[in-house]
Design a protein around this nucleic acid. Sequence first.
DNA 1: ATTAATGTTCAGAA
DNA 2: TTTCTGAACATTAA
Length: 281
Amino acid sequence: MPELPEVETMVRGIRPSVEGRVITAMKKCRCPCKPITMNPTWPRITKRVLGQKVVEVTRIAKRAVFQLSSGDAIVIEPRMTGLLLLNDPPDRGHLRVRWDFEHPGGDSSLWFWDRRGLGTLSLYSAAELTQRLAPPHLGVDALKITQRQWKVVCGKTKRAIKVALLDQKFVAGIGNLYASEILHRAGIHPQQPADELTQPQIQRMATATRTVLRTAIEHEGSTLSDGTYRNALNQNGSYQNSHQVYQRAEEFCPKCRETPVQRIVQAQRSTFFCPVCQPLR
DNA sequence: ATTAATGTTCAGAA
DNA sequence: TTTCTGAACATTAA
């Protein structure tokens, strides 16, 4: 479930081994699984990528972006189980792509490993990059959104706030895990309509979003019980130890210490919250 | 052995 | 127009 903190951790982890280096090879791995979903076709991508220098490695929402000297950008979307790895993968069976880099300081390799195979690989021109990964196609990044922008987007939808937080056009980077954690920290009921949030609630949500996401990045993301997410060196994150409500149904809420965390389903997704600490209205 | 659950996004329906 | 539902993907727990 790489969300914003996990993708940021991957990008930071691979940056020293990728940034400033020339791509000497890019290969599809001959694993038994299906090839990675890509756009455009593989020959068109490799033709524009080979020999290019990666001038910058960045994150846009839940995507990793390799800015090339040509102006094109490699855009990797890990989706559910995709990982960018410098080290050995969790298993050899689900490697999808391999890049080799050349550098005076030492050559290096990078893998895209993806157990479920939902991840995607795209090559965008500079124009496509700015057009497709910015509003209105994609919302403002959850680490950059201002309180004023929160107020604007909340006023535009009657959907439950938890459902809206999962909409990447509403705000970009938050997924199912961090949506529950953010709303718990902000003391907001997940079923409250977004356009009915009060000014103090919006302020608390803005603050909670920054705090939760920044702290999660410091802890290198969340590795859940399925063990899928790992950092660039194939090591676990540790933010799962700081989860207040996510996957903690029936346990006492760590804030009030007397109410069991409740699990409900919204938009076919699990939501975890404390009915006492997160009252409606 | 079948079924449900897991998370994200998109196509298409309400 | 906005919101909701189902499909796709792979794997595991029940």
